[in-house]
């Protein structure tokens, strides 16, 4: 039996949707100003965050700078750009599409899984964060003399841990997007609050060994902890206190926790979506 044009086009619609979502995010991110200002916007936040940490460290250390610790801070701050830009924007995408553009309901009733649209929207943000990550590291090397040698970087490990890291970021982001569908008050601040909490416990700026016992246990079930650690090992070549000593076992933990967290996150998203549809929250405008 011949496939009709409608059937044929619908069989490919999720790919089209993904592509269109990527394109939409790129347009909404980059089309609001001229390219120079947009570049400054992409780079400004992670660089200034890294410099704040460096200045704080310099003040605390009384000017006796340890480049290894400086490297630890810079790589942690650079990696965190992915968390802020990729994960943190998932709930904001839901909220702005629903409240600002009033388009969420139309996108939602298109013949794709809404989760596909959300993942598509995240893709350009990964690219933006990658640029910020690279520039922050370059500034660290050139101006702060952190010990990164371009030929010593373990690029294979960096690539693998980054790819797995993106999966966990998308997993977290999808779960927060689900929460944004059902939450009303405070939904805009949710990602900032959660991101702040993760910043403290995942070893982004200090080793997890200084955390209280229960927080350390929490840190060890969060894939971001292993991701940041493996990024440091790939870039700097040394490990952090409190983490497994071998890169292979650390990567194994990253994979296991990523599978666990991402599975839970997707289930959580679908539960939230179910409740949002059940309660009629998909097209509400809260004014918050």
């Amino acid at each position: 039996m011949a496939i009709t044009e409608r059937e044929q086009r619908n069989s490919h619609s999720w790919i089209h949707s993904l592509r269109a979502a990527v394109w939409l995010e790129w347009q909404t991110r980059g089309n609001w100003t001229n390219p120079w200002l947009f570049t400054l916007y992409i780079l400004g936040k992670p660089i200034s965050a890294a410099l704040v940490l460096v200045f704080m460290y310099e003040v605390v250390s009384g000017g006796k700078v340890n480049t290894m610790i400086l490297g630890y801070l810079i790589v942690g701050a650079a990696t965190w750009a992915f968390v802020d830009t990729v994960m943190g924007e998932f709930p904001r995408t839901v909220l702005s599409d629903r409240e600002e553009y009033a388009m969420l309901k139309y996108v939602y009733i298109a013949p794709h899984r809404f989760i596909t649209f959300l993942i598509g929207r995240a893709a350009p943000r990964i690219l933006m964060a990658a640029v910020a990550f690279t520039v922050t590291l370059i500034i660290g090397v050139v101006f702060l003399k952190i010990p990164i040698h371009i030929f010593s970087i373990n690029y294979l490990l960096l690539t693998v841990t980054m790819l797995i890291g993106f999966i966990s970021l998308i997993g977290f982001g999808v779960a927060f997007a689900g929460l944004a569908l059902v939450l009303k008050r405070g939904a805009w601040d949710m990602s900032t609050a959660i991101s702040g909490a993760l910043y403290l416990v995942t070893g982004a700026i200090f080793p997890i060994t200084i955390l209280p016992g229960f927080l350390k246990d929490i840190a060890l079930v969060i894939p971001l902890t292993y991701w940041i650690e493996l990024t440091r090992r790939a870039v700097l070549g040394y490990s952090s206190p409190g983490m497994p000593s071998g890169w292979a076992i650390t990567l194994f933990y990253q994979i296991i926790t990523t599978i666990l967290v991402t599975t839970i996150a997707i289930i959580a998203y679908y539960i939230c979506e179910h409740f949002a549809r059940e309660r009629g929250q998909l097209d509400r405008v809260t004014g918050n």
Binding site: R9, N10, S11, H12, S13, H16, S17, R19, A20, W23, L24, Q27, T28, N31, W32, Y101, A102, M103, K105, Y106, V107, A110, P111, H112, F117
Partner: peptide, 26 residues
Amino acid sequence: SGGEQSGYGILTVREQLWMFAQFYGV
């Protein structure tokens, strides 16, 4: 739906329509 100011303001009319056509696999 009527009575609402929906639309991705940053896109052109053509872009917005093209994007929705993509969502439906056109």
